[in-house]
Nucleic acid binder design. Structure first.
Lengths: 204, 204
DNA sequence: ATCCTATATGTAAGCATTTACTCACTTAAA
DNA sequence: TTTAAGTGAGTAAATGCTTACATATAGGAT
C-alpha cells in the first residue's frame, strides 16, 4: 500500500534518454567551464548518476563528442540546407538562414566552443573531417543563397562571395562572446535581424 | 682553442629569453593541439628542456597564460588604440585597424583560440576580467572610429554601431577557422583588404 | 493478477596513466 | 665563489575507464 509512496531518486531510464541527458550535460559543461574542464566525474555529478553509469550509454568520452558532432551535422546543417534550397527569394532565405543559425546556437550554447576548439587539433582524423565538413557546408550553402541573389539581380554581382561567407562564419562566435560577457542574456530575434540588415546592405 | 667548437645543446639562457620561448611554445601548442592538450610535459619537450626547468621561469602553468594575456593587452590593444586615436581619416583608420588585427593574430596563431576558450570558464576571476577588458576595448575602439566617421559625414548616421562592432569581433575567428582548414596558408594583406571593403560598404 | 527470469541500468571501489608541481642535487656563467 | 639555470626522480591528485556486484524493469508462463 505504501510501497509506491516513496520515489526512488535513482529511477532507471532507457539508454536513449540517458544519452540525450549526457550530451546535453556535456554541452552545458563546455559552455560554463570549458572543454578542458570536461571530466567524466563532473559529468556524472551534474546528471546525478555514478561515473560508471555513463559508460553504460557511451563506450568512451570521445564517442559522446562524436555523437554530438553528428547531431550538429544532421540538425543544424540539415536545417540550413532546407532553408538554402527553398523556393523563397534570396533575401528571405538569407534572413532565415541567419535566424536559424542564431537560434540553434543559443539553444545549444556549448556547440560553438566545441566545434571551434575541437577543430584545432588533429588527434582524431575522423572527427576533424566531420568538423571540416560542417564548416564547409555552412560556407557552401550561404554562397549558394548569395549567388542566387546575384543571378536574380537583387544583389550586386561584384560582391566577393567568398569573403561574405567568411564574415558570416564569425557571427556565431561574436554571438558566443556576447553570451559569455552578458551571462547568457541576449535578444535572439533582434540580434538576427540586425545581422541580416548589415549583410543585406553589404550585398547591395 | 677547440673549446668553443662544440656547442652545448643545453646552453643556459637568461630567464627573460626562456619566458619568451615558453610563451611562444604555449601559443604554438594551443594552435596545433588545442588548449586541453597543453601540458607542461609537452611544453618542455617542444622547447627542448626538462619539465622542472619551466618552473624556474614561471611559478605555475596558469601564470604563463596570464602573462600572455597581459602581452595581448599591451601589444595588441595598445596597437589598436594608437590606430583608433590617430589623426587619419576614419576609413583609413578602419583599414589599418583591420589589417593590424589580422597581422597580429596570424603572427600569434594560438591567441584567438586562447582568448576565446579561456573566456568561457569562470575558474579564474582575475583572468576573466582581463579577457573581458580585451574584448570590450576592441569594441570600444572600433566604435570610436565608426562614430568619428559618421560625425565627419563619410558614413551613414543610421548605421547600428554596436552591431557592426559585433560583426568585427567575429573576423579573427573566421580567420582562425580558415587558417586551420587551410593549414596556415592565407594571404594576410589580401584578406584584410577584402574585409575593409565589406565593412566600408556596410557603413555607407 | 502473480511469479519467474533475462536483461538493461545502476553503483562503489579500484586500476593504470597523466597531470602540475617539488626537491635534492649539479653545473654553467657572471 | 656566488648565483641563476638546469636535471631526473618523485609526489599527490585527477583522469578515463573497468570490474564485480546489485536491482529495477519488461515480458512471458502460470
Amino acid at each position: 500500500m505504501f510501497a509506491n509512496v516513496y520515489l526512488h531518486n535513482n529511477m532507471r531510464k532507457p539508454t536513449e534518454i540517458r544519452q540525450e541527458q549526457i550530451k546535453q550535460a556535456v554541452l552545458d559543461i563546455i559552455f560554463t567551464d570549458g572543454l578542458k574542464n570536461l571530466s567524466t566525474r563532473m559529468l556524472a555529478q551534474r546528471i546525478g548518476m555514478s561515473e560508471g553509469a555513463i559508460f553504460r550509454h557511451f563506450p568512451t568520452k570521445q564517442h559522446i563528442i562524436v555523437d554530438i558532432v553528428n547531431d550538429v551535422h544532421k540538425d543544424f546543417i540539415g536545417g540550413l540546407r532546407k532553408i538554402a534550397l527553398s523556393k523563397q527569394n534570396p533575401p528571405k532565405r538569407l534572413e532565415e538562414f541567419l535566424c536559424f543559425t542564431i537560434k540553434y546556437l543559443t539553444d545549444n550554447k556549448g556547440i560553438t566552443l566545441l566545434l571551434f576548439s575541437e577543430a584545432s587539433h588533429n588527434n582524431d582524423v575522423q572527427l576533424k573531417q566531420a568538423l571540416t565538413q560542417i564548416f564547409n557546408s555552412q560556407k557552401k550553402l550561404l554562397s549558394k543563397i548569395i549567388l542566387d541573389g546575384i543571378a536574380e539581380g537583387v544583389w550586386d554581382e561584384s560582391v566577393p562571395v567568398e569573403s561574405v561567407a567568411m564574415l558570416y562564419m564569425g557571427i556565431p562566435v561574436s554571438l558566443n562572446i556576447e553570451l559569455i560577457l552578458n551571462s547568457g542574456l541576449i535578444d535572439s530575434s533582434n540580434f538576427c535581424n540586425k545581422m541580416f540588415q548589415l549583410m543585406n546592405k553589404m550585398l547591395k
